[in-house]
Design a protein around this nucleic acid. Structure first.
Length: 461
DNA sequence: TTAGGGTTAG
């Protein structure tokens, strides 16, 4: 960097935009010029927006709070409400609803006027966290801020659907129209999605008719996707095809979601060739497959034990700039284990970070269960330790099975190691203790068994 | 980025 050219307010914005690493971006923000400045650096609102959203996306909340405190002291400009919507959303995704609420309450001290937009963002946080009581409580309090809009009611509908209260969800339409808010295509989409999810297809289709007849709102691709998935789950593939034809007739674009649903539905009922036909048709019609579509096809080849084809698809995704995600890998990992290709699976798992994809809780569970089923308990213990260290938890049934196997195999060393690991994750239950103690007593060498129990207890303390 | 669909498995 040329020291003769100090970084200006404007240039900091451009540099922040380019810096992908949030830590480096923060460094740059805090110290734009290495030389001690003659006068304090003047930040732009854009720089604040960029650094705060970068830190929020990276879940670097302490650092983000620090910048927010600094922003609060700026008097030359007032931040936009949209920035606070973003931050509230970041806290929601991190399952920190109380902090989101606190920030919402503090907005006026940033000289930001709260409207129904930030209120809806907050409502969405409690929806994400499945705190439906709190949603209801917030909804009752909205009058203080303004009028609930369609988005507010749509969030409420999702809350009811998520808690299985479909009839209450349906009643929201009446409530909103009574208050002069018109239901929109998202309102009907949410309801149809809920009905389809609970296999109440008749009501879903009735709503699709009524939304047009009564409200003059027309179904879009989102709604067709829910319906197609619903009828596929029911095994009615001909109806799924008819819905697709109806979309073409109504000039609704067949997007990748529609194709993913159809291909997946066809494959699940054993119509593999037809599924591959739709996959070809999709490409012929110029609809670009995305990560989800590729995942559906990868799943198809994996279930067919054609791992070479699955790997080829992973490469094709990278070539086409459509990055494989954790599901792409989990699909392959699961099938590799099912086929007993545990070494190959482990290699792929270990290669994931290099390929730019961090394993998630599902990946770890696949490995842990896979090694247990293959009686590779040492490897299972190793994965267990790694996953618990990362804050992921195995299924309780898997832990039980694992401990049971170690007991049956009288594998005292691994058992001690496993208890140690499980304790770190606070996962040792009474059942597991009972199993270990029973094993100790069953052993004819009673004295050494007491030693085992003692050492298990010692390790805990 | 105020709200919605489709893929793993459970």
């Amino acid at each position: 960097m040329n020291p003769a050219r100090p970084i200006t307010t404007f240039r900091l914005g451009s540099l922040l935009r380019l810096q992908k690493d949030p830590k480096l971006a923060l460094q740059l923000f805090k110290n734009p010029n290495p030389e001690p400045p003659l006068k304090p650096f003047r930040y732009s609102l854009l720089s604040y927006d960029l650094i705060i959203t970068k830190l929020g996306r990276a879940k670097m909340f302490n650092e983000m709070q620090e910048i927010l405190s600094q922003l609060k002291e700026e008097t030359l400009f007032t931040p936009k409400e949209a920035l606070f919507c973003d931050i509230i959303n970041f806290y929601g995704r991190a399952h920190l609803p109380e902090i989101a609420l606190k920030l919402f309450d503090e907005m006026p001290s940033f000289r930001v006027q709260r409207t129904v937009k930030s209120y809806n963002s907050l409502l969405n946080v409690f929806l994400m966290c499945k705190d439906f009581d709190k949603m209801r409580e917030l909804f009752v309090g909205i009058e203080k801020l303004g009028k609930a809009d369609a988005c507010t009611y749509n969030l409420l509908i999702r809350g009811f659907c998520a808690s299985g209260r479909l009839d209450d969800a349906f009643k929201v339409i009446g409530e909103m129209t009574n208050r002069g808010v018109s239901p929109n295509v998202i309102t009907f989409g949410n309801l149809i999605y809920g009905f389809c999810l609970h296999s109440r297809l008749k009501e879903a289709f009735k709503l699709k008719t009524d939304m047009v007849k009564i409200y003059r709102v027309y179904p879009n691709a989102y709604i067709y996707a829910s319906l197609i998935k619903g009828v596929c789950k029911n095994g009615d593939l001909s109806l799924a095809y008819r819905l697709k034809e109806e979309m073409i007739r109504n000039k609704i674009e067949l997007d990748s979601a529609i194709y993913s649903t159809l291909i997946s539905g066809l494959f699940k009922v054993g119509r593999k060739e037809e599924a591959l036909g739709v996959w070809e048709d999709m490409k012929v019609r110029g609809c670009k497959p995305d990560t989800v579509t590729y995942n559906v096809i990868i799943n198809l080849f994996c279930k067919d034990k054609d791992f070479e084809a699955a790997y080829r698809l992973l490469d094709e995704m990278v070539e086409k700039g459509c990055e494989p995600d954790v599901i792409s890998y989990n699909v392959i990992l699961r099938e590799l284990f099912k086929e007993g290709k545990r070494d190959e699976a482990n290699d792929l798992f270990e290669d994931m970070p290099r390929r730019g994809c961090a394993p998630d809780v599902v990946s770890y569970r696949i490995l842990f269960d896979g090694f247990c089923n293959g009686m590779q308990f040492k490897e299972a213990a190793f994965i267990l330790d790694e996953m618990i260290f990362k804050g992921f938890v195995p299924c309780s049934a898997s832990i039980c099975k694992f401990v049971n196997s170690l007991c049956e195999g009288k594998n005292a060393d691994l058992l001690r190691l496993a208890f140690n690991t499980l304790e770190k994750g606070k996962l040792v239950t009474v059942d597991l203790w009972t199993m270990a103690v029973a094993m100790a007593y069953k052993d004819d060498k009673l004295s050494s068994s007491f030693n085992l129990v003692d050492s298990l207890i010692d390790d805990m303390n």
